[in-house]
């Protein structure tokens, strides 16, 4: 990660984050400067101007497995690789602005509540690229734990970097 990345501030939210389902008008939220597939897809102001923006696809008939929600105007929450037999999904999020990123802790909690309470999933996991101060605290506070460290999993800034898998399992 570049050195200019700001840390996540530990803000306390008076009102819980409310997610709603994706609508066509939310399309601009699906593309941004976060790292692709990142569990906590915070905007990276240090991304070079010619670097490809990350993007997730909108819901489509040929991709019935994905569940896509938004924080209106601010971020998306995507459950992908949903496997109903194993009752798990991979979570990725993307925040379009630093202002939206301030809602990261609340959004993560809302996303995990949605996974458990609405989707009936038992396990959620995702990719985390280390380097951003404060990320681990936010993830742990939401109930996630680091489960694996995979070397060379992402090409970033001219070299392969390691990535972590973080996840959680509910008891049935």
């Amino acid at each position: 990660m570049t050195t200019a990345t700001p840390a996540i501030t530990d803000t306390v939210h008076e009102t819980p984050v409310r997610l709603r389902g994706y609508r066509a008008a939310d399309m601009p939220l699906l593309t941004g400067s976060w790292l692709p597939g990142e569990l906590l897809g915070l905007p990276d102001p240090g991304r070079p101007p010619f670097a490809d923006l990350a993007s997730v696809p909108p819901p489509a008939a040929d991709r019935p497995g994905d569940e896509l929600y938004v924080l209106p105007g601010g971020a998306f929450v995507r459950f992908t690789e949903v496997d109903w037999v194993h009752r798990r999904a991979r979570l990725e999020t993307g925040f379009t602005t630093e202002a939206a990123a301030a809602h990261a802790p609340g959004l993560l909690t809302a996303a995990l509540d949605r996974a458990r309470g609405t989707l009936g999933l038992r396990r959620v996991h995702g990719w985390v690229t280390p380097g951003r101060p404060g990320t681990e605290e936010v993830l742990r506070a939401a109930g996630l734990a680091r489960e694996a460290e995979v070397p060379h999993a992402l090409w970033l800034d001219g070299r392969p970097v390691g990535r972590q898998i973080w996840g959680m399992c509910s008891d049935d």
Binding site: H86, R122, R123, E149, P151, I165, C169
Partner: peptide
């Protein structure tokens, strides 16, 4: 080994771990 994914699979009646391994 570079990690263990707990409860990642449901096979034959119970949830099982997945081992993650790596080499260069």
């Amino acid at each position: 080994p570079c990690g263990v994914l707990p409860g990642h699979l449901f096979h034959s009646g119970r949830y099982r771990e997945v081992l993650v391994l790596h080499t260069d």
